[in-house]
Design a protein around this nucleic acid. Sequence first.
DNA 1: CGGAATCCTCTTCGATACTG
DNA 2: CAGTATCGAAGAGGATTCCG
Lengths: 209, 209
Amino acid sequence: MGRSYQQYCPIAHALDIVGERWSLLVVRELMRGPQRYSDLHERLPGCGTNVLAARLKRLEEAGVVHRHRLPPPAASMVYELTEYGEGLRRVVHELARWGIRSLGPPAPDEALHPGWLIEALGAITELQSDTPDTRVEFRVGAEVGSFSAGVVSQGAADEPDAIVSTDPPGFYHLFVNGDFEQVEITGDRDAVGRLVSAAALGPPLALHV
Amino acid sequence: MGRSYQQYCPIAHALDIVGERWSLLVVRELMRGPQRYSDLHERLPGCGTNVLAARLKRLEEAGVVHRHRLPPPAASMVYELTEYGEGLRRVVHELARWGIRSLGPPAPDEALHPGWLIEALGAITELQSDTPDTRVEFRVGAEVGSFSAGVVSQGAADEPDAIVSTDPPGFYHLFVNGDFEQVEITGDRDAVGRLVSAAALGPPLALHV
DNA sequence: CGGAATCCTCTTCGATACTG
DNA sequence: CAGTATCGAAGAGGATTCCG
Protein backbone atom coordinates (compact mmCIF):
# COMPACT_ATOMS: atom_id res chain seq x y z
CA MET A 1 0.00 0.00 0.00
CA GLY A 2 1.14 3.47 -0.77
CA ARG A 3 1.62 6.05 1.87
CA SER A 4 -1.49 7.61 3.35
CA TYR A 5 -2.07 11.33 3.61
CA GLN A 6 -3.24 10.77 7.17
CA GLN A 7 -5.95 13.39 7.16
CA TYR A 8 -9.60 13.10 8.06
CA CYS A 9 -10.87 14.43 4.76
CA PRO A 10 -12.94 12.69 2.10
CA ILE A 11 -10.70 14.03 -0.64
CA ALA A 12 -7.47 12.88 0.96
CA HIS A 13 -9.15 9.56 1.72
CA ALA A 14 -10.28 9.13 -1.87
CA LEU A 15 -6.75 9.89 -3.03
CA ASP A 16 -5.40 7.34 -0.57
CA ILE A 17 -7.38 4.80 -2.57
CA VAL A 18 -7.14 5.96 -6.17
CA GLY A 19 -4.54 8.72 -6.06
CA GLU A 20 -1.49 6.64 -6.82
CA ARG A 21 0.02 6.60 -10.25
CA TRP A 22 -1.96 4.43 -12.73
CA SER A 23 -4.88 3.75 -10.38
CA LEU A 24 -7.41 5.97 -12.12
CA LEU A 25 -6.29 4.73 -15.52
CA VAL A 26 -6.95 1.18 -14.37
CA VAL A 27 -10.42 2.35 -13.37
CA ARG A 28 -10.84 4.04 -16.74
CA GLU A 29 -10.11 0.73 -18.44
CA LEU A 30 -12.48 -1.19 -16.21
CA MET A 31 -15.23 1.31 -16.99
CA ARG A 32 -15.32 -0.36 -20.41
CA GLY A 33 -16.27 -3.61 -18.75
CA PRO A 34 -14.55 -6.55 -17.03
CA GLN A 35 -10.98 -7.08 -18.16
CA ARG A 36 -8.26 -9.64 -17.72
CA TYR A 37 -4.89 -8.79 -16.28
CA SER A 38 -3.20 -9.00 -19.65
CA ASP A 39 -5.86 -6.85 -21.32
CA LEU A 40 -5.19 -4.16 -18.75
CA HIS A 41 -1.46 -4.48 -19.10
CA GLU A 42 -1.70 -4.16 -22.84
CA ARG A 43 -3.86 -1.04 -22.64
CA LEU A 44 -1.60 0.68 -20.13
CA PRO A 45 1.73 0.98 -21.86
CA GLY A 46 4.47 1.99 -19.47
CA CYS A 47 2.84 0.44 -16.44
CA GLY A 48 5.10 -2.24 -15.01
CA THR A 49 3.58 -5.62 -14.27
CA ASN A 50 4.43 -5.31 -10.61
CA VAL A 51 2.83 -1.88 -10.42
CA LEU A 52 -0.32 -3.11 -12.12
CA ALA A 53 -0.53 -6.06 -9.74
CA ALA A 54 -0.04 -3.78 -6.75
CA ARG A 55 -2.73 -1.34 -7.93
CA LEU A 56 -5.24 -4.11 -8.56
CA LYS A 57 -4.59 -5.57 -5.15
CA ARG A 58 -5.03 -2.20 -3.50
CA LEU A 59 -8.21 -1.46 -5.42
CA GLU A 60 -9.58 -4.84 -4.49
CA GLU A 61 -8.81 -4.30 -0.81
CA ALA A 62 -10.57 -0.95 -0.95
CA GLY A 63 -13.72 -2.43 -2.48
CA VAL A 64 -13.30 -0.69 -5.82
CA VAL A 65 -12.54 -3.76 -7.90
CA HIS A 66 -13.74 -7.32 -7.71
CA ARG A 67 -11.57 -10.17 -8.93
CA HIS A 68 -13.08 -13.48 -9.87
CA ARG A 69 -12.54 -16.50 -12.04
CA LEU A 70 -14.62 -17.01 -15.13
CA PRO A 71 -16.59 -20.27 -15.24
CA PRO A 72 -14.86 -23.10 -17.15
CA PRO A 73 -13.84 -23.69 -19.86
CA ALA A 74 -12.49 -20.13 -20.10
CA ALA A 75 -11.25 -20.31 -16.54
CA SER A 76 -9.35 -17.07 -16.60
CA MET A 77 -9.26 -14.30 -14.04
CA VAL A 78 -11.17 -11.10 -14.66
CA TYR A 79 -11.32 -7.80 -12.87
CA GLU A 80 -14.41 -5.67 -12.76
CA LEU A 81 -15.63 -2.59 -10.96
CA THR A 82 -17.79 -3.05 -7.91
CA GLU A 83 -20.81 -0.86 -7.37
CA TYR A 84 -18.53 1.42 -5.38
CA GLY A 85 -15.98 1.41 -8.16
CA GLU A 86 -18.70 2.37 -10.64
CA GLY A 87 -19.14 5.49 -8.55
CA LEU A 88 -15.80 6.67 -9.90
CA ARG A 89 -17.35 7.08 -13.33
CA ARG A 90 -18.52 10.55 -12.47
CA VAL A 91 -15.12 11.48 -11.08
CA VAL A 92 -13.37 10.22 -14.19
CA HIS A 93 -15.84 12.00 -16.46
CA GLU A 94 -15.34 15.28 -14.64
CA LEU A 95 -11.61 14.82 -14.95
CA ALA A 96 -12.00 14.21 -18.68
CA ARG A 97 -14.20 17.28 -19.09
CA TRP A 98 -11.57 19.34 -17.34
CA GLY A 99 -8.60 17.82 -19.13
CA ILE A 100 -10.03 18.21 -22.61
CA ARG A 101 -9.79 21.97 -22.36
CA SER A 102 -6.02 21.92 -22.34
CA LEU A 103 -5.46 18.79 -24.38
CA GLY A 104 -5.82 20.15 -27.87
CA PRO A 105 -7.32 18.28 -30.82
CA PRO A 106 -5.99 14.90 -31.84
CA ALA A 107 -3.58 14.78 -34.75
CA PRO A 108 -5.51 13.91 -37.92
CA ASP A 109 -3.76 10.55 -38.02
CA GLU A 110 -3.91 9.90 -34.27
CA ALA A 111 -4.90 6.31 -33.56
CA LEU A 112 -7.83 6.38 -31.16
CA HIS A 113 -8.93 3.17 -29.53
CA PRO A 114 -12.17 1.56 -30.66
CA GLY A 115 -15.12 2.73 -28.61
CA TRP A 116 -13.65 6.13 -27.81
CA LEU A 117 -16.65 8.02 -29.20
CA ILE A 118 -19.17 6.50 -26.87
CA GLU A 119 -17.00 7.31 -23.88
CA ALA A 120 -16.38 10.82 -25.13
CA LEU A 121 -20.12 11.40 -25.56
CA GLY A 122 -20.72 10.02 -22.09
CA ALA A 123 -18.22 12.36 -20.50
CA ILE A 124 -19.24 15.37 -22.56
CA THR A 125 -22.90 15.03 -21.75
CA GLU A 126 -22.41 13.91 -18.16
CA LEU A 127 -25.11 15.36 -15.97
CA GLN A 128 -26.84 17.17 -18.80
CA SER A 129 -30.52 16.65 -18.34
CA ASP A 130 -31.50 19.93 -19.94
CA THR A 131 -31.68 18.59 -23.46
CA PRO A 132 -34.60 16.23 -22.95
CA ASP A 133 -35.95 15.90 -26.47
CA THR A 134 -32.77 16.20 -28.48
CA ARG A 135 -31.63 13.29 -30.61
CA VAL A 136 -28.37 13.51 -32.46
CA GLU A 137 -26.36 10.86 -34.23
CA PHE A 138 -22.58 11.21 -34.53
CA ARG A 139 -20.49 9.61 -37.26
CA VAL A 140 -16.86 10.26 -36.45
CA GLY A 141 -14.36 8.34 -38.51
CA ALA A 142 -15.24 4.68 -38.09
CA GLU A 143 -17.28 5.28 -34.93
CA VAL A 144 -21.01 5.83 -34.69
CA GLY A 145 -22.77 6.87 -31.52
CA SER A 146 -25.85 8.77 -30.59
CA PHE A 147 -27.36 10.97 -27.96
CA SER A 148 -31.05 10.61 -27.33
CA ALA A 149 -33.13 12.01 -24.50
CA GLY A 150 -30.13 12.32 -22.23
CA VAL A 151 -28.85 8.83 -22.93
CA VAL A 152 -25.77 7.92 -24.93
CA SER A 153 -25.72 4.75 -26.95
CA GLN A 154 -23.57 3.03 -29.49
CA GLY A 155 -24.59 2.97 -33.12
CA ALA A 156 -27.16 4.87 -35.12
CA ALA A 157 -30.03 6.80 -33.58
CA ASP A 158 -33.70 6.14 -34.21
CA GLU A 159 -35.13 9.09 -36.13
CA PRO A 160 -32.47 11.60 -35.10
CA ASP A 161 -33.08 15.34 -35.27
CA ALA A 162 -29.63 15.68 -36.77
CA ILE A 163 -26.70 13.64 -38.00
CA VAL A 164 -23.19 14.98 -37.46
CA SER A 165 -20.44 13.64 -39.71
CA THR A 166 -16.82 14.57 -39.09
CA ASP A 167 -13.38 13.32 -38.10
CA PRO A 168 -11.93 13.32 -34.57
CA PRO A 169 -10.38 16.81 -34.84
CA GLY A 170 -13.69 18.15 -36.13
CA PHE A 171 -15.49 16.52 -33.23
CA TYR A 172 -13.04 18.12 -30.82
CA HIS A 173 -13.45 21.58 -32.29
CA LEU A 174 -17.21 21.25 -32.29
CA PHE A 175 -17.47 20.70 -28.55
CA VAL A 176 -14.41 22.53 -27.27
CA ASN A 177 -14.45 25.57 -29.51
CA GLY A 178 -18.08 25.57 -30.59
CA ASP A 179 -16.72 25.47 -34.11
CA PHE A 180 -19.20 24.10 -36.65
CA GLU A 181 -16.83 24.62 -39.60
CA GLN A 182 -15.34 21.18 -39.53
CA VAL A 183 -18.52 19.15 -39.23
CA GLU A 184 -21.18 18.25 -41.73
CA ILE A 185 -24.71 18.35 -40.39
CA THR A 186 -27.83 16.97 -41.96
CA GLY A 187 -31.10 17.79 -40.25
CA ASP A 188 -31.69 20.21 -37.40
CA ARG A 189 -28.57 22.26 -36.87
CA ASP A 190 -30.05 23.80 -33.72
CA ALA A 191 -30.36 20.40 -32.08
CA VAL A 192 -26.59 20.07 -32.32
CA GLY A 193 -26.21 23.60 -31.03
CA ARG A 194 -28.30 22.83 -27.97
CA LEU A 195 -26.18 19.77 -27.25
CA VAL A 196 -22.94 21.69 -27.56
CA SER A 197 -24.25 24.44 -25.30
CA ALA A 198 -25.47 21.97 -22.73
CA ALA A 199 -22.10 20.26 -22.67
CA ALA A 200 -20.62 23.53 -21.39
CA LEU A 201 -17.04 22.43 -21.42
CA GLY A 202 -15.64 25.92 -21.07
CA PRO A 203 -13.09 27.61 -23.26
CA PRO A 204 -9.92 25.84 -24.37
CA LEU A 205 -6.58 26.86 -22.94
CA ALA A 206 -3.72 28.18 -24.96
CA LEU A 207 -0.98 25.62 -25.27
CA HIS A 208 0.65 24.91 -21.97
CA VAL A 209 4.17 23.69 -21.36
CA MET B 1 7.93 17.62 -14.16
CA GLY B 2 6.68 14.17 -13.42
CA ARG B 3 6.57 11.62 -16.09
CA SER B 4 3.79 11.73 -18.62
CA TYR B 5 1.43 8.88 -19.40
CA GLN B 6 1.99 9.63 -23.08
CA GLN B 7 -1.54 8.87 -24.20
CA TYR B 8 -3.92 10.99 -26.22
CA CYS B 9 -6.70 10.87 -23.68
CA PRO B 10 -8.27 13.69 -21.69
CA ILE B 11 -8.13 11.64 -18.52
CA ALA B 12 -4.47 10.73 -18.86
CA HIS B 13 -3.76 14.33 -19.79
CA ALA B 14 -5.60 15.66 -16.74
CA LEU B 15 -3.63 13.25 -14.57
CA ASP B 16 -0.41 14.42 -16.18
CA ILE B 17 -1.26 17.82 -14.71
CA VAL B 18 -2.87 17.07 -11.35
CA GLY B 19 -2.28 13.35 -10.88
CA GLU B 20 0.96 13.56 -8.95
CA ARG B 21 1.06 13.11 -5.24
CA TRP B 22 -0.14 16.24 -3.33
CA SER B 23 -1.28 18.14 -6.42
CA LEU B 24 -5.02 17.78 -5.84
CA LEU B 25 -4.60 18.55 -2.17
CA VAL B 26 -2.84 21.77 -3.10
CA VAL B 27 -5.84 22.54 -5.30
CA ARG B 28 -8.17 21.67 -2.44
CA GLU B 29 -6.41 24.23 -0.27
CA LEU B 30 -6.50 26.90 -2.95
CA MET B 31 -10.22 26.33 -3.38
CA ARG B 32 -10.53 28.12 -0.03
CA GLY B 33 -9.01 31.21 -1.58
CA PRO B 34 -5.54 32.57 -2.32
CA GLN B 35 -2.84 31.23 -0.02
CA ARG B 36 0.77 31.89 0.72
CA TYR B 37 3.42 29.24 0.37
CA SER B 38 3.76 28.81 4.10
CA ASP B 39 0.00 28.59 4.60
CA LEU B 40 -0.07 25.74 2.12
CA HIS B 41 2.92 24.07 3.70
CA GLU B 42 1.33 24.27 7.10
CA ARG B 43 -1.95 22.78 5.91
CA LEU B 44 -0.29 19.90 4.09
CA PRO B 45 1.61 18.05 6.80
CA GLY B 46 3.99 15.51 5.34
CA CYS B 47 4.54 17.40 2.12
CA GLY B 48 8.21 18.32 1.77
CA THR B 49 9.10 21.88 0.90
CA ASN B 50 10.73 20.80 -2.31
CA VAL B 51 7.69 18.77 -3.33
CA LEU B 52 5.34 21.66 -2.63
CA ALA B 53 7.51 24.03 -4.62
CA ALA B 54 7.68 21.58 -7.51
CA ARG B 55 3.90 21.06 -7.53
CA LEU B 56 3.20 24.77 -7.47
CA LYS B 57 5.61 25.32 -10.32
CA ARG B 58 4.02 22.56 -12.35
CA LEU B 59 0.50 23.82 -11.65
CA GLU B 60 1.54 27.30 -12.64
CA GLU B 61 3.04 26.08 -15.91
CA ALA B 62 -0.15 24.20 -16.67
CA GLY B 63 -2.31 27.28 -16.12
CA VAL B 64 -4.00 25.92 -13.02
CA VAL B 65 -2.46 28.29 -10.53
CA HIS B 66 -1.47 31.91 -10.73
CA ARG B 67 1.32 33.30 -8.61
CA HIS B 68 1.57 36.99 -7.87
CA ARG B 69 2.86 39.46 -5.35
CA LEU B 70 0.49 41.26 -3.06
CA PRO B 71 0.62 45.04 -3.20
CA PRO B 72 2.85 46.65 -0.54
CA PRO B 73 3.12 46.85 2.39
CA ALA B 74 2.18 43.16 2.67
CA ALA B 75 4.40 42.37 -0.28
CA SER B 76 4.20 38.63 0.02
CA MET B 77 3.64 36.05 -2.66
CA VAL B 78 0.25 34.42 -2.98
CA TYR B 79 -1.00 31.53 -5.04
CA GLU B 80 -4.51 31.35 -6.36
CA LEU B 81 -6.48 29.25 -8.77
CA THR B 82 -6.92 30.49 -12.31
CA GLU B 83 -10.28 30.20 -14.03
CA TYR B 84 -9.06 26.89 -15.38
CA GLY B 85 -7.99 25.77 -11.92
CA GLU B 86 -11.42 26.68 -10.59
CA GLY B 87 -12.75 24.10 -13.00
CA LEU B 88 -11.22 21.45 -10.76
CA ARG B 89 -13.76 22.26 -8.08
CA ARG B 90 -16.25 19.89 -9.63
CA VAL B 91 -13.63 17.17 -9.91
CA VAL B 92 -12.61 17.59 -6.29
CA HIS B 93 -16.22 17.64 -5.14
CA GLU B 94 -17.00 14.44 -7.01
CA LEU B 95 -13.95 12.87 -5.44
CA ALA B 96 -15.15 13.94 -2.02
CA ARG B 97 -18.64 12.60 -2.64
CA TRP B 98 -17.11 9.29 -3.63
CA GLY B 99 -14.57 9.16 -0.82
CA ILE B 100 -17.04 9.95 1.93
CA ARG B 101 -18.78 6.62 1.41
CA SER B 102 -15.80 4.65 2.65
CA LEU B 103 -14.36 7.20 5.05
CA GLY B 104 -16.54 6.60 8.07
CA PRO B 105 -17.66 9.27 10.53
CA PRO B 106 -15.15 11.50 12.26
CA ALA B 107 -14.19 10.62 15.79
CA PRO B 108 -16.25 12.67 18.21
CA ASP B 109 -13.13 14.58 19.21
CA GLU B 110 -11.67 14.83 15.71
CA ALA B 111 -10.26 18.28 15.06
CA LEU B 112 -11.79 19.55 11.83
CA HIS B 113 -10.39 22.67 10.26
CA PRO B 114 -12.42 25.87 10.39
CA GLY B 115 -14.66 26.26 7.39
CA TRP B 116 -15.09 22.54 6.79
CA LEU B 117 -18.87 22.72 6.93
CA ILE B 118 -19.26 25.11 4.06
CA GLU B 119 -17.04 22.95 1.89
CA ALA B 120 -18.84 19.80 2.92
CA LEU B 121 -22.20 21.36 2.03
CA GLY B 122 -20.78 22.50 -1.29
CA ALA B 123 -19.59 19.02 -2.18
CA ILE B 124 -22.67 17.25 -0.88
CA THR B 125 -25.06 19.42 -2.78
CA GLU B 126 -22.90 19.73 -5.89
CA LEU B 127 -25.04 19.73 -8.99
CA GLN B 128 -28.29 19.45 -7.10
CA SER B 129 -30.73 21.81 -8.71
CA ASP B 130 -33.77 19.77 -7.84
CA THR B 131 -34.33 21.35 -4.46
CA PRO B 132 -35.14 24.86 -5.67
CA ASP B 133 -37.16 26.21 -2.79
CA THR B 134 -35.53 24.45 0.12
CA ARG B 135 -33.80 26.51 2.78
CA VAL B 136 -31.98 24.76 5.56
CA GLU B 137 -29.58 26.07 8.15
CA PHE B 138 -26.94 23.79 9.66
CA ARG B 139 -25.35 24.28 13.06
CA VAL B 140 -22.62 21.71 13.43
CA GLY B 141 -20.30 22.17 16.37
CA ALA B 142 -18.91 25.67 16.04
CA GLU B 143 -19.77 25.95 12.36
CA VAL B 144 -22.88 27.46 10.84
CA GLY B 145 -23.78 27.22 7.19
CA SER B 146 -26.88 27.19 5.10
CA PHE B 147 -28.36 25.90 1.91
CA SER B 148 -30.80 28.12 0.16
CA ALA B 149 -32.22 27.78 -3.33
CA GLY B 150 -29.35 25.65 -4.51
CA VAL B 151 -26.70 27.95 -3.09
CA VAL B 152 -24.49 27.26 -0.10
CA SER B 153 -23.40 30.11 2.13
CA GLN B 154 -21.64 30.66 5.39
CA GLY B 155 -23.60 31.64 8.45
CA ALA B 156 -27.27 31.61 9.29
CA ALA B 157 -30.04 31.41 6.73
CA ASP B 158 -32.72 33.99 6.16
CA GLU B 159 -36.07 32.49 7.21
CA PRO B 160 -35.01 28.85 6.86
CA ASP B 161 -37.53 26.05 6.46
CA ALA B 162 -35.56 24.06 8.99
CA ILE B 163 -32.57 24.31 11.30
CA VAL B 164 -30.40 21.25 11.84
CA SER B 165 -28.28 21.13 14.98
CA THR B 166 -25.78 18.34 15.51
CA ASP B 167 -22.11 17.44 15.85
CA PRO B 168 -19.82 16.30 13.01
CA PRO B 169 -20.57 12.57 13.43
CA GLY B 170 -24.29 13.33 13.42
CA PHE B 171 -23.86 15.39 10.27
CA TYR B 172 -22.03 12.48 8.66
CA HIS B 173 -24.68 9.96 9.58
CA LEU B 174 -27.43 12.23 8.35
CA PHE B 175 -26.10 12.47 4.81
CA VAL B 176 -24.30 9.16 4.43
CA ASN B 177 -26.70 6.86 6.26
CA GLY B 178 -29.86 8.91 6.07
CA ASP B 179 -29.91 8.64 9.83
CA PHE B 180 -31.94 11.38 11.52
CA GLU B 181 -31.35 9.98 15.01
CA GLN B 182 -28.32 12.07 15.78
CA VAL B 183 -29.61 15.43 14.63
CA GLU B 184 -32.00 17.87 16.17
CA ILE B 185 -34.36 19.54 13.75
CA THR B 186 -36.54 22.55 14.33
CA GLY B 187 -38.98 23.42 11.57
CA ASP B 188 -39.79 21.45 8.47
CA ARG B 189 -38.30 17.98 8.79
CA ASP B 190 -39.24 17.17 5.19
CA ALA B 191 -37.10 20.01 3.88
CA VAL B 192 -34.08 18.29 5.40
CA GLY B 193 -35.25 14.99 3.98
CA ARG B 194 -35.45 16.44 0.48
CA LEU B 195 -31.93 17.79 0.79
CA VAL B 196 -30.55 14.46 1.99
CA SER B 197 -32.31 12.63 -0.83
CA ALA B 198 -31.08 15.09 -3.42
CA ALA B 199 -27.52 14.68 -2.19
CA ALA B 200 -27.72 11.03 -3.21
CA LEU B 201 -24.33 10.04 -1.89
CA GLY B 202 -24.99 6.31 -2.10
CA PRO B 203 -24.64 3.74 0.64
CA PRO B 204 -21.59 3.66 2.91
CA LEU B 205 -19.04 0.89 2.55
CA ALA B 206 -18.13 -1.52 5.26
CA LEU B 207 -14.74 -0.78 6.71
CA HIS B 208 -12.00 -1.44 4.22
CA VAL B 209 -8.36 -2.21 4.88
C1' DC C 1 10.03 36.09 8.46
C1' DG C 2 8.34 33.96 4.16
C1' DG C 3 9.95 31.25 0.12
C1' DA C 4 12.26 28.30 -1.45
C1' DA C 5 17.07 25.42 -2.99
C1' DT C 6 20.14 21.70 -1.27
C1' DC C 7 21.40 17.44 0.64
C1' DC C 8 20.56 12.88 2.03
C1' DT C 9 17.94 8.65 2.89
C1' DC C 10 14.25 5.86 1.76
C1' DT C 11 10.58 4.30 -1.14
C1' DT C 12 8.47 3.68 -5.48
C1' DC C 13 8.58 3.18 -10.42
C1' DG C 14 9.49 0.95 -14.74
C1' DA C 15 11.64 -2.55 -17.41
C1' DT C 16 13.08 -7.07 -17.93
C1' DA C 17 13.46 -11.70 -16.58
C1' DC C 18 11.49 -15.44 -14.62
C1' DT C 19 7.84 -18.92 -12.51
C1' DG C 20 3.29 -21.53 -11.13
C1' DC D 1 -2.10 -16.29 -18.58
C1' DA D 2 -1.20 -14.13 -14.31
C1' DG D 3 1.46 -12.72 -11.88
C1' DT D 4 6.43 -12.59 -8.65
C1' DA D 5 11.52 -11.32 -8.39
C1' DT D 6 15.04 -8.27 -9.24
C1' DC D 7 17.51 -4.02 -10.04
C1' DG D 8 18.82 0.66 -11.74
C1' DA D 9 16.57 5.17 -12.04
C1' DA D 10 13.49 8.48 -10.39
C1' DG D 11 10.77 10.64 -6.91
C1' DA D 12 9.23 11.52 -2.03
C1' DG D 13 10.11 13.10 2.71
C1' DG D 14 12.69 15.33 6.29
C1' DA D 15 16.12 18.51 7.99
C1' DT D 16 18.88 22.13 7.16
C1' DT D 17 20.55 26.15 4.83
C1' DC D 18 20.26 30.04 1.98
C1' DC D 19 18.28 34.27 0.06
C1' DG D 20 15.56 38.83 0.00
